[in-house]
């Protein structure tokens, strides 16, 4: 997308969302006044001071803006509130980052279908890294055991559990492909999901209303819905979090692979790519002609899944 078009787009979004802002800010002021009033009442009662603080923070959280409309100051404030809330509620010491995208970076991923052995170390690492719900066994990645000659995962077995690799089969991993022309973004009625300048499609969990239109729109089964409150044992919690990434989700919101935004924006590989024991997963900057991902695209036979849909995914499959 050219920059002027993008700017226009952003302006439009701002316009749409700002129209309500007068009412919103009025409500916010009203709510703060109400909170203060009730706080006065509550402290007069028998509820502890911690409870009052939690209530106040929750009030302010409730009236915050869409992440894209926040100033840096507001982003820092909401992050500080979320960190404090986690401390009050679960006595958890977490760090939430709001690291911006890096300049001249566009993330891309390549998956070697002739190397993957189906060990599923990637899935395990992803669950741990991204604080995925253990109760419903949510997973962002799904590996399909496929017969040779097939290239459509629907023909494969996505729930195998036996010694791998099996002779005559190959393994194909599917996750969010971070499409440049993503159908899920268009489907979202609240603009709670968007594509960042570095190509990662993210969700503002606080603006998601849980309508699941994006889930229906995605042709790659890339999105997951929280039917219940996600549960992660405290000792297994990954405390290094990102606002748009692996911070704790709530009941009734969508979530999905974010290319481990909390890691990749720090220069690290996503958890799946780091965990893979076979080196089937190649990750890097598409705008860097010297990156590994560019080598793969230039020298290997690559294809993208359902390319004919025009979704323009940034996830390639390749063979040796």
């Amino acid at each position: 997308m050219n920059s002027s078009g993008k700017k226009e787009d952003e302006m439009k979004i701002t316009d749409i969302l700002e129209k309500k802002s007068t009412r919103r800010s009025f409500m916010k002021n009203l709510s703060i006044a109400a909170a203060a009033g009730s706080a006065g009442l509550v402290t007069g009662g028998c509820v502890s001071l911690g409870k009052t603080e939690e209530m106040g923070l929750k009030w302010e959280e409730y009236f915050k803006k869409n992440y894209r409309l926040m100033t840096q100051e507001e982003k820092d404030e909401t992050v500080a509130r979320l960190v404090r809330l986690a401390k009050i509620k679960n006595d958890a010491d977490i760090q939430i980052s709001n690291q911006e995208p890096r300049e001249n970076v566009l993330y891309g991923y390549a998956f070697n279908i002739s190397r993957c052995k189906g060990y599923m170390d990637c899935v395990e690492a992803c669950v741990k890294e991204n604080n995925l719900d253990r109760k419903s066994k949510t997973q962002y990645i799904r590996l399909f055991e496929m017969d040779s000659g097939q290239l459509d995962p629907t023909s494969g077995d996505g729930k195998y559990f036996h010694e791998v690799p099996v002779e005559g089969k190959f393994y194909m991993g599917v996750q969010c492909f971070h499409c440049e022309n993503a159908p899920c973004i268009k489907a979202c009625p609240t603009k709670a999901t968007w594509r960042e300048p570095d190509g990662i499609v993210v969700i503002d969990y606080d603006w998601c209303i849980g309508c699941r239109y994006c889930l229906a729109a995605c042709p790659y089964w890339g999105r997951r819905f929280n039917w219940g409150e996600p549960e992660v044992p405290k000792e297994e919690m990954n405390t290094k979090q990102h606002y748009l990434g692996n911070r704790m989700r709530m009941k009734g919101v969508m979530e999905k692979c974010t290319f481990c935004v909390q890691r990749t924006r720090q220069g690290k590989l996503p958890a799946c790519a780091e965990a893979c024991p076979t080196g089937s997963r190649v990750f890097g900057n598409l705008l860097d002609p010297n990156s590994e991902i560019r080598y793969v695209l230039k020298n290997k036979r690559v294809f993208r899944f359902k390319e004919e849909l025009g979704t323009d995914p940034k996830f390639w499959y390749f063979i040796d």
């Binding site: 599923m120 395990e124 669950v127 996505g158 729930k159 195998y160 791998v164």
Partner: peptide, 14 residues
């Protein structure tokens, strides 16, 4: 050569 082994985890049916 890589050995055959049990996968680290499993996925629920679609």
């Amino acid at each position: 050569a890589f050995e055959t082994k049990m996968p680290a985890t499993y996925s629920l049916p679609l």
